[in-house]
Amino acid sequence: MHRYNCIIVEDEPLAAEVIIDYIEQVPFLQCKGICTDALYAMDLLQKETIDLIFLDIHLPKLKGLDFIKALRQPPQIIITSAYPEYALQGYELNVVDYLLKPIEFSRFLMAVNKLKERGSMDSDKTALFFNVSKKRVKVYIDEILFIESLKEYIRITTKDKSILTKFQLGQIEEMLAKNGFLRIHRSFLVAKNKIDAFSATDVEINGEQIPIGRSYKDAVIALLG
């Protein structure tokens, strides 16, 4: 049985104890730590492989929703809060569920079962999350056609959508280095397996003509054959 490593980010000891008790009753969950603030949680995420965060919203130093936005590749998140008015913002950030305190075990179990369902759907697909208009938008790596640099921003294009996010092309190129992406121009990164046709001056992907930079030409033609 796959076990999900989880942490609790909660500054109220009694609330944290309830979550710990519930986790111990679920065979596929394993608690790896309790954090009393989001900054401590960020540090723990650097040291441990975490699949799930049980996250309070009203935290010292950094609020829960701001914590989610600050994570480049957040794990799955279940919000635990006494404040229903933040639920919409939570779901816009793609959280698994939003649990209102006091939390009943039956409701907790429903939320973690959603996690299992989501995991089974995404098990063969790797995704990244990007900040787009105050939301965290999921993009599956194998659906990306090409990425264009626009100064401080990049435009990520898939077959179904295009998103604009503040990111450097060099950063995303490094992140996707093992996923079959090819730099063909100082402003363009393309998915090699999505190329439909190419010439000495450009590649064609899904009907789009993307230029090959002069300094990239020899390497690109050699790789594409």
Rank of each mutant, 00 (worst) to 15 (best):
M1H: 09
R3K: 15
R3P: 03
E10W: 03
L14N: 12
A16E: 06
A16K: 02
V18M: 11
I20F: 08
V26K: 03
V26G: 04
V26R: 03
F28L: 12
L29D: 00
K32E: 15
I34R: 06
T36K: 11
A41N: 00
D43E: 15
D43H: 09
Q46F: 02
T49I: 13
L52Y: 07
I53Q: 00
L55R: 01
H58T: 11
L59W: 03
D66Y: 07
L71C: 10
L71P: 05
L71A: 12
I77F: 10
P84D: 14
E85R: 03
A87V: 12
A87L: 10
D97H: 04
Y98G: 00
Y98C: 02
L100Y: 06
F105N: 06
F108Q: 00
M110I: 08
M110E: 14
A111N: 01
V112A: 03
L115W: 03
G119T: 07
S123M: 13
T126Y: 07
A127R: 05
L128G: 04
V132M: 07
V132Q: 02
K135T: 14
K135R: 15
R136D: 01
K138Y: 09
Y140F: 15
E143N: 12
L145I: 04
I147D: 01
E148N: 07
I154A: 01
T158V: 08
T158L: 10
K159R: 11
K161S: 15
L169N: 07
K178I: 09
G180S: 09
F181C: 10
L182E: 00
I184H: 00
I184W: 00
H185G: 11
F188C: 03
L189H: 01
I195Y: 06
D196C: 08
D196P: 01
A197Q: 11
S199W: 06
A200D: 09
E204H: 05
G207W: 05
R214P: 02
Y216F: 15
K217R: 15
A219L: 12
I221T: 05
